[in-house]
Every structure is written in C-alpha cells, then in structure tokens.
Amino acid sequence: MTVKIVTDSLSDITSDIAEELGITVVPLTVLFGHETFLDRVTMTTDQFYHRLTRDSVWPTTTQPTPAAFIEVYNELAKETDEILVVTLSSKLSGTYQSALGARSMFEGKCRIEIIDSKLVAMGLGLIVITTAKKAQAGAKLNELTGAVVSALPRSHIAIYLDTLKYLAKGGRIGKAQGLLGSMLSVKPILTIKEGEIAPLTRMRSLSAGMDYLYNFAAGFANIEELAVEHATTPDAADRLVERLGSLFPKERIYQSTISPVVGTYAGPDALAITVLEAAKR
C-alpha cells in the first residue's frame, strides 16, 4: 500500500500538484473578526489580500483542530496502513501539536509518523513534494521519514517583505525584532532559522530585493528543486522566474502563492524563493 502524505496549507502546495501526487493538505484558518475562512478553501488568496489591505478588522489565524486531523487520518486509513504527516514549524503554529493530539486520539490501525519540519511555505512544500514522489514510487514509511529528516537542513528560504508592520502586529516576529523601528523605509529579507523567523538583511527597494533573491539562489552550486512564490505581485514573481532560468530549468521551477495565513504576518507584496539543495554525495 502506498504511504499517504499529509501536510498543512502553509506548505503552499497548489491543488493540482496535491492532486497529482496524492498529498492531503489540511487547511489552517484565517479569522476576520467573527468570520472564519479555511486557507484557500473558503477564501482565495486574492480575496484575502483585498480584505487585508482594506478591512479595518485585523485578521488572526489559527491552526487546524485535532478533529480536522482525525478526520483526515480516518479517511486515509481506509486506503493505507501508513501515513506521514509533515507540518510547518511548531515554533510558528500549533499545527504540529494538533497533528500529535489527533494521533493520540486516533483509534484506527494505521501507523502515523509526524514530523515538525521547522520550516514554512515552499521551504516545507518542496520537501513534501519530493517525499510524495518517493511515496508514489513505492518507498515505505521508515524510508520516507528518514528522507524527510535528512532533507530538512537542505531547504533554504529567503522571504522579501514590503513591510514589517504585519509581522510586528501578529507577534510572530522572532529574531527579526532587531529590524523593527527603522527610521528609513526598508524592505526586510527574512529566513527561517531553527524554526523561527530570523533576519537576513534589508533592502531599500523591490528591485534590490529581487537582486538579492536571485543571488541567494545563485549562491547554491547544486539545486535539486527551486520554488518562487508571491503574495500579490505575479509580475514580479514571473520576472524572477525568468531570471532564474539562467540557473535552473525554468519549467521545473515551482510557482505558487504565499498562504493567506503567512500573508497575515507578511503583508502584501511579499516574495519568496526556496532552494532545495541537492544532497552531497
């Protein structure tokens, strides 16, 4: 039986890829006051950013409930006896806790492994995608778990933000706090380090930021997978992909949008690049 792969919506895996590779994506929730929306299920990315920039209500986000995971486990248990769950960083969300809680309450016979990726966005997505491919090729749970754990340190993300305003407001700023309060308008470039937001540097414009993202990818000698995602600027993402064509086959670059849940903290105009470095032989 094929091992079933489960992740959360912060992996930014598009629905067609999820379908093609048999990945179950459990959505997180965005709340605008009393209205709740399932990440890219009951609210699209466009709708979200439209409200984020115009609504007076500040959105908040919540992890999936353990019940949501139990439902997924029960459903998948009908088809398989092994499930691998890879969640976003437990330091950024309680999703990992929910997945664990659900496993302790799950009464089926399936074996379930749950991994805290300590990553987010396509940093997580690329790992889930490569793992799902291996699962489809027939790899068993132990093998897949080992592959994920060894791949985690090879996933590198750089995120360009237009502003730190949303991150500060949401209280998820982590080690990037030092970038706050600049007297000049600056565009921070962040990464995820040990599961938390950490600063890389600062730029003063989008084009300088895009140069940085390009150079970030160019700094890796061996790229296994590459992903580019955006919040509200598809043109900028396209331009970046076009440039990256000189480093990596363009058609193999995964393009996606940044989750509204991340968008709550990243704000509009964010761009991100993820490099999955090839394993050293």
Binding site: Q63, P66, G94, Q97, G101, L164, G181, S182
Partner: peptide
Amino acid sequence: KFRKPQIIVSSIPL
C-alpha cells in the same frame, strides 16, 4: 490545550 498565549511585541523603535 493545544495552544499557547502570545507574548505581545511592541513595534516602537527599540
């Protein structure tokens, strides 16, 4: 049970 309270971060220049 599965969540943790948030420590508020100030956005004024520190």
